[in-house]
Design a binder for these strands. Structure first.
Length: 686
DNA sequence: TTAAGCTTTCTTTTT
DNA sequence: GAAAGCTTAA
């Protein structure tokens, strides 16, 4: 028998060895890997987050300054989770680490005055969310006469683009998606259009003209969209080697989580930093969980990592501590249908449970929802906590029927899909007030505010903006007779009231006391507009109150807005209620569920067209991606996995009821690996 | 000419 | 269940 030796902490030494306690052999080697380039391939449930957080802790224990560690994660949720786990390991030092999404980190860096100015921005630049960006693209399209407005009126732009058969109006969302993908994949527009946007082929010059106008508008507004945060960061490093080297010296240790979800732009940023600096780079990921192709993610970044970094150390974490052997067997069988990628067979570390995944067909969506609710209620009665259960789906829309059912049955739930808190119209309205005060050139925010006023439509808003935006201080110009003259006569009363309201909000000093400013908006004429314009005004007013509560934690508007846009969560979120008891059922898209786990997981609406998504299957590589999404879904379950699908479904709510096909992801799995449930209804007495 | 109201269409996933 | 498009009213 081997002798047991327990290492004791040496007096006065940092207890970094203690940091590695509780890790298995490979995990420990990975966490304590020497400097240089390291790749950690980590299957679901294999302790990936543990390893990466322990590695950071270990580095700090080795004497690396926390503020010289850059840890990028892919989603806001993952970033928050990571920092929380890190805090419990290293305490306050965790807050010194540069941990966050690429966008959060870019924002922090580019706010530095010298960087912002080197790029031609002021450091108080606004951030445009997806909707703002789309509005501005639409604006650019209209100005070029390429939109719906431009076609009927022949007075503008006709000759410039007139060389060819222009085709119909260009759809802002398509143009925006193509431009974004081109930037994120570092690919020329022609190739992107050819591969992913055939409907734009032959109109590349028009799209490029839109891109130029859009870029100019963003510049004039001192605003960056999500893509700009990354693009400008990269541009800074390319054009200013001095700035690049300073950053590279600052970040001596780079860690990239969810490498398979990074896109080319992100990977170039990281590798530029690594090449110019100490070259210490640790990448963590799992090619089988790459589910962000639509955002330009490319799992080749992970697959080809060893080629790009010859001699890098590779660690494979293949023991799954999360799920039962039955669930692991099921997930292994699913992912083997994907041809590409590192072959992967996970081994469960847990004892057999003799409970196979369950597949249940119901006759329609209502019964599917009834079934899920009933099984949840039974589980709760049997002693399972509601917080240990989640229902996952491919599309947010798939959850609507279930939500109604949960409400009638009084089951508490939290939805983690759909609109985010800050994306709700009334929240954006309030933020627009604050935005124009902090950055008076913010065209998008101005337009939004003006369009709120009855009697002012797109044309009037544009005229007012043409008057105020080119002036030195648009805020001051707004109160002049000139601005008043540009407003339509019938709207002048409202306009004057708005000007006065905005002055009130300005007096509340939004830049330094955002909470006061939120309350000033609440006291202004906006409240009346809200009641007129939106449904459920009481709820919306409460949301704004909630925004005020959140804002009270900030002494700078910039940081509040950045946190909302870059770190803010879905409605009902942790940001708003950090100490939320979390004893609610979770409803979530698979994408939002990534990296999380529950004891009991339902995956619903497993039918062709929904999961896999109908559009995805016709795109090259789309089906494999959908299967990876399925893989992510089923690997969230620790103890019980229940898959449901309806036989009949009416598409789009009022459409005809059609017969569905069970998802191929279920059909293709060995029938011995799961159990089928036969669902029948009680006979109801009349 | 512009705004507002009504109808129709289509709905992936996220920073 | 929202955004784009069309129609009507001012």
């Amino acid at each position: 028998m081997a002798r047991r030796i327990t290492l004791r902490k040496a007096a006065g030494r940092s207890d970094w060895e203690a940091m590695l306690v509780g890790l298995n052999e490979v995990q420990r080697l990975a966490a304590a890997a020497p400097d240089g380039v390291n790749l950690i391939l980590a299957g679901p449930g294999s302790g990936k987050t543990r390893v990466i957080t322990h590695r950071v802790a270990w580095l700090i224990g080795q004497g690396v300054a926390p503020e010289s560690i850059l840890l990028t994660t892919f989603t806001r949720r993952a970033a928050r989770e990571m920092v929380a786990r890190l805090s419990s390991l290293v305490g306050p030092a965790a807050d010194q680490v540069w941990a966050g999404t690429f966008h959060q980190i870019a924002n922090r860096l580019l706010r530095r005055r010298e960087f912002a100015e080197a790029l031609g921005y002021q450091s108080n630049f606004s951030i445009l969310d997806a909707e703002d960006a789309l509005d501005l693209v639409a604006q650019a399209i209209d100005e070029l006469g390429l939109g719906t407005r431009g076609r009927s009126s022949t007075r503008r732009g006709g000759s410039e683009s007139g060389c060819g058969e222009a085709g119909g109006p260009l759809k802002p969302s398509t143009v925006q998606a193509a431009l974004s993908l081109a930037l994120n994949t570092r690919t020329g527009l022609p190739r992107i259009v050819e591969e992913r946007f055939p409907e734009l082929s032959g109109r590349i010059e028009q799209v490029e003209a839109i891109a130029r106008t859009y870029a100019a508008k963003k510049r004039a507004a001192n605003a960056m969209d999500y893509d700009d945060l990354l693009v400008q960061w990269m541009r800074l490093m390319e054009q200013r080697p001095d700035a690049r080297d300073r950053m590279a010296r600052e970040f001596t240790h780079l860690l990239v989580d969810e490498m398979q979800d990074t896109n080319t732009l992100q990977i170039e940023i990281v590798e530029t930093l690594a090449a110019a600096g100490a070259g210490n780079l640790t990448a963590v990921g799992d090619d089988a969980q790459s589910i962000y192709r639509f955002r330009g993610a490319n799992y080749d970044n992970l697959l080809k990592f060893p080629e790009r970094h010859p001699g890098c150390r590779v660690f494979r974490l293949e023991i799954n501590y999360r799920s039962t052997p039955e669930i692991v067997a099921f997930t292994n069988d699913s992912i083997r249908h994907n041809v590409e990628g590192f072959p992967k067979t996970l081994i469960s570390a847990r004892p057999a449970s003799h409970l196979k995944p369950l597949a249940a067909a119901t006759s329609n969506a209502y019964e599917e929802s009834d079934l899920i609710c009933q099984l949840i209620q039974e589980a709760v009665e049997a002693g399972r906590r509601l917080g240990e259960i989640a229902v996952l789906y491919r599309n947010h829309h798939d959850s609507i029927v279930l939500q109604g059912d949960l409400v009638t049955r009084g089951l508490k739930y939290t939805v983690r899909s759909g609109l985010r808190f800050f994306e709700q119209a009334h929240i954006k309205d309030v933020l627009a007030h604050l935005r124009v005060l902090s950055n008076p050139r913010d065209e998008t925010a101005w337009r939004r505010l003006l369009l709120l006023l009855p009697g002012i439509g797109p044309a009037a808003a544009s005229r007012i903006l043409e008057t105020i935006l080119p002036t030195a201080n648009p805020l001051d110009t707004l109160a002049t007779a000139e601005a008043m003259a540009s407003a339509p006569p019938r709207a002048r009363g409202r306009f004057a009231a708005f000007v006065a309201d905005l002055a009130q909000v300005r007096a509340a000093d939004p830049g330094n006391r955002p909470a006061e400013a939120v309350h000033a908006v609440l006291k202004s004429g906006y409240t009346e507009i809200l009641k007129q314009k939106y449904e459920h005004p009481e709820q919306r007013l409460k949301d704004i109150e909630q925004l005020g509560v959140l804002a009270a934690r900030y002494d700078a508007l910039d940081r509040l807005v950045a946190d909302l846009l870059l770190a803010g969560d879905v409605y009902g979120m942790d940001t708003l209620e950090p100490d939320e008891p979390a004893e609610t059922l979770v409803l979530s898209t698979v994408h939002q569920a990534k990296g999380l786990e529950w004891s009991m997981v339902f995956v619903m609406r497993l039918i062709e067209e929904s999961f896999p998504n109908a559009r995805a299957v016709i795109e090259p590589g789309g089906l494999d991606e959908e299967r990876r999404i399925f893989y992510v879904a089923i690997t969230r379950a620790k103890d019980e996995l229940i898959l449901t699908y309806p036989h009949l479904l009416s598409r789009g709510g009022r459409g005809p009821v059609v017969l569905t096909k069970p998802s191929r992801f279920l059909q293709e799995i060995d029938v011995n690996l799961y159990e089928r449930a036969i669902v029948s209804r009680d006979v109801e007495p009349f």
